Computed example of a mutant assay.
Amino acid sequence: MKQEELDIILDNHGKWLRNEGGVRADLRYTELKNTNLIYADLSNANLRGANLRGAELSYADLSGANLDNADLSYADLSGANLRHADLRGVNLDNANLRYTDLRHADLSYADLNDANLRYTDLRGANLNWVKWQHVEGLTVICVQVDTSRRNNQITYIKELEIWITDCFQGTLDELKASVEQTHKDNEKLRKRYYRVIDFILNEVAE
């Protein structure tokens, strides 16, 4: 799809959201051909800051697209291809992300509160500073660490076996190695991190 066509769709969607007429953005498959679905091709599209709240984007190809700070709350992205997409700061509150391919996407600072993440593929995605409250389909445990820094927490995603804190993302062994290296001169702070880690592991085991 050409950028000019996409801009017209976004403009009409904005009018629809403001009750000024317009048309709800529907960027799903475009037609049936030889019984095979031809899905909307939005790969590498520039959607930075776009307001796509409540839009239909299921099965769309958004691989490599720039969705930095876009509003995709309540949007249907089920089955969409978002590999390597720029989703920094994107609003995905209450979005449908079932079976969505988010491999190697940058989701740092994204809002995933109340999103449906059942069967979502998040392998290799950047998940630093994501908001995870009440997500569906993943077991996410976030615990605040008592330090002088604000919003310093450890997040564990059980199904992915990923640990996240500040700009770190990796396995449990990698997290422990990072804690040892970063706080090697502060035994008191190291112990606080380990207490939080042990608490999370105990919660997961129950």
Rank of each mutant, 00 (worst) to 15 (best):
A50F: 08
L112S: 08
N46L: 14
T100N: 10
S63T: 12
V140R: 02
Y99G: 04
R83N: 05
E56K: 15
A85T: 00
A55L: 06
G54T: 03
I141D: 11
G89L: 00
D76Q: 02
A125W: 03
N113P: 08
Y109N: 13
N116K: 12
R83S: 06
H134D: 07
A110P: 14
E136D: 08
L102M: 15
A80Y: 08
D101A: 10
Q133T: 03
L127E: 04
D71H: 08
E56F: 14
N152S: 08
N116M: 11
C142G: 08
A55W: 10
S63I: 11
L138R: 06
A50V: 04
N91K: 03
L127W: 05
R88M: 07
L97K: 10
H84Y: 15
D146I: 01
R103L: 09
W129P: 00
G124N: 07
N151C: 09
V140H: 04
H84I: 00
R123L: 11
D68K: 06
S63Y: 14
G64F: 07
N116H: 13
S63V: 10
S73I: 00
G49T: 09
N46I: 14
L77F: 00
L97N: 10
C142Q: 14
V145W: 11
V130G: 09
A65E: 02
T139R: 09
S73M: 01
G49H: 08
D101Y: 14
N69V: 00
A80M: 05
A85D: 00
T147R: 03
N96D: 14
V130F: 10
N113G: 12
A55M: 06
N96T: 03
H134T: 00
H84P: 01
N128D: 05
H134I: 00
N91S: 04
G49Q: 09
D76T: 00
R103D: 09
G54Y: 09
E56D: 15
L102Q: 12
A125I: 01
Q133M: 08
L67S: 03
H134E: 05
L107A: 12
H134F: 06
L92R: 02
V143G: 01
D71A: 04
A85W: 02
Y99R: 12
R48K: 15
